[in-house]
Design a protein around this nucleic acid. Structure first.
Length: 474
RNA sequence: GGCGACGUGGCCAAGUGGCUAAGGCAGAGGUCUGCAAAACCUCCAUCCCCGGUUCAAAUCCGGGCGUCGCCUCCA
């Protein structure tokens, strides 16, 4: 399998450090709000990738942190008049609901900053003793000038960075590039006792500390996250970790591309973000998941209502193929010929090839559309055997149900139908449908069409099927 | 200013040296159904521009134009 490694900016053959085991860390959310679709992307991408690694036989130790100590949490908690950890706990619970809706499985570990303070303090103390960090007035900063390779991950050199750095007047650090490992307590803030007085951890240190603690290893196989974390977050993680252990921190860095809205980056600061919770009112989690996986994970995706609608239609097509297979499972017809066995053998090979090539889920999906076509052809031409059906069904289950986890799914029907229409209205509609069907039975189609056309003007569709006629709002 | 990504049919999106440039959406034609809807079948691009390398380039190199991102909390 090949994986694109941000550290070298090329695809590399993937080999885990310890045979059969993959230690994988993905930066999780800061829990002060409901997650938005941009947060959902790494969640879904790396969840699916973890599933894929598992299917290859790896035992995946998957770690995703919750940042529950942070300025944004502290500020919001103050506004709401509750403790910061209480606020974080609330949003961790909300996060879990959204993750489940998106079919994201739990990580092996979900460590929280607040539960790893001792380890963080120890980590920082070690950096100070090695000369990679210094304390000033209760703050501790990482000393970038003492760590020569700084910038190697993000491809920046320290001279350029210094030239472009903004000077923060409040900072006591000696270089603008230095970053906080420990922050001295401010009046009324949550804090812990440390050798440098009361305070709390800086942002970057948690990931280094917790990844080592929960893998029991200085080097991760895979570290994932959004591209915007490359600098400074991941750069700083590398610096502090390698300064601490002397060993490489990460073997493969994987970064997902952004979600854009109207071609502009979606971000909290721009305010143009969409909450997963809101989207789930209109589209099922599987549709969102499909949307996120239908583009290669490193490319940007533009988010809009139309895109999700398109994803829903596409996924419906795959669902039709899957449903057809389920019907065939109970079919005892004995056919002379079978095309499924051979076709799906080839399809599985192509899917594996796609996923082996830097997890190309977009390409993998396309083969399932081909597969769905072949299933209908097999049905139409009576060319399916029990074995062939089972094989196809297993492949659908393996990839679309288990790994990519976009099937089965149900469309979210617009809720307005049920909630806003009165009982009287529904009864009147039933009468109209009955009147129309009576006319149709009498072959008075002109009269029936009149009713349907008039209703269409009110954005109400009448749909005739073998089982009867139904109506729905457009 | 420094670093980086990208530019493929109406829209979305794979493909990074070589069979007829995947797939989805939309559109067109058809099968089916009283008609319509749904479903199914068929059709629909030479890859931003210019130059170069090569027997051969969307794919490599150089230049240009354009879009976007990082350099500041952010997935």
């Amino acid at each position: 399998m090949k994986v694109y490694n941000t550290a070298n900016r090329k695809k590399e053959e993937f080999n885990s450090i310890n045979k059969g085991i993959v230690n994988m860390y993905v930066c999780g959310p800061t829990t002060y709000n409901l997650i938005h679709i941009g947060n959902a992307r790494p969640l879904v991408v790396f969840d699916a990738f973890r599933n894929y690694l598992t299917s290859l036989g790896y035992q995946v130790n998957y770690i995703q942190n919750f940042t529950d100590v942070d300025d944004k949490i502290i500020n919001k908690a103050k506004d709401e008049g509750i403790g910061p950890l209480e606020l974080a706990a609330k949003y961790i619970a909300e996060y879990t609901k959204d993750a489940e809706s998106l079919r994201v499985k739990k990580a092996t570990f979900h460590p929280k900053v607040s539960e790893n303070i001792d380890e963080i303090i120890e980590f920082i103390a070690n950096l100070i003793s090695k000369g990679f960090a210094y304390e000033i007035d209760g703050d501790v900063y990482f000393d970038v000038k003492n760590y020569k390779p700084y910038g190697k991950l993000s491809g920046k050199n320290t001279d350029d960075l210094k030239a472009g750095a903004r000077v923060n007047v409040d900072d006591k650090k000696t270089s603008p590039l230095d970053f906080a490992l420990w922050k001295n307590v401010k009046e009324g803030e949550i804090n812990w006792i440390s050798p440098w007085g009361k305070g709390r951890p800086g942002w970057h240190i948690e990931c280094s500390t917790m990844s080592m603690k929960y893998t029991n290893s200085p080097t991760l196989d895979i570290h994932g996250g959004g591209q915007d974390l490359i600098f400074p977050h991941h750069e700083n993680e590398v610096a502090q970790s390698e300064a601490y252990t002397g060993a490489p921190f990460v073997k493969y860095w994987m970064h997902n591309g952004f979600i854009t809205v109207n071609k502009e980056k979606m971000s909290k600061s721009l305010g143009n973000f969409f909450l997963v919770r809101e989207i789930l009112e209109k589209f099922s989690g599987e549709v969102i998941r499909y949307f996120l996986l239908s583009t290669h994970y490193r490319n940007p995706i533009d988010f809009n209502d139309g895109a999700l609608l398109e994803s829903e239609k596409s996924l419906t097509k795959l669902m039709t193929g899957y449903s057809n297979l389920e019907k065939l499972l109970n079919d005892s017809t004995e056919n002379q010929e079978d095309i499924l066995l051979e076709e799906f053998k080839q399809i599985e090979e192509k899917i594996e090839k796609a996923l082996q090539d830097d997890f190309n889920t977009a390409l993998a999906f396309s083969y399932f559309f081909d597969g769905s076509k072949i299933i209908t052809r097999a049905i139409n031409e009576n060319k399916y055997s029990k074995e062939g059906v089972e094989r196809a069904y297993n492949i659908f289950n393996k990839y679309l149900v288990d790994i990519l986890a976009v099937l089965p799914f149900e469309k979210i029907e617009s809720k307005e139908d049920d909630s806003s229409d009165s009982e009287v209205f529904k009864k009147v509609m039933d009468i109209l449908v009955n009147v129309r069907n009576t006319a149709r039975k009498d072959k008075n189609f002109a009269y029936g069409d009149l009713i349907r056309n008039e209703l269409a003007k009110l954005d109400i569709d009448i749909i005739d099927t073998k089982e009867g006629s139904t109506w729905k709002r457009k």
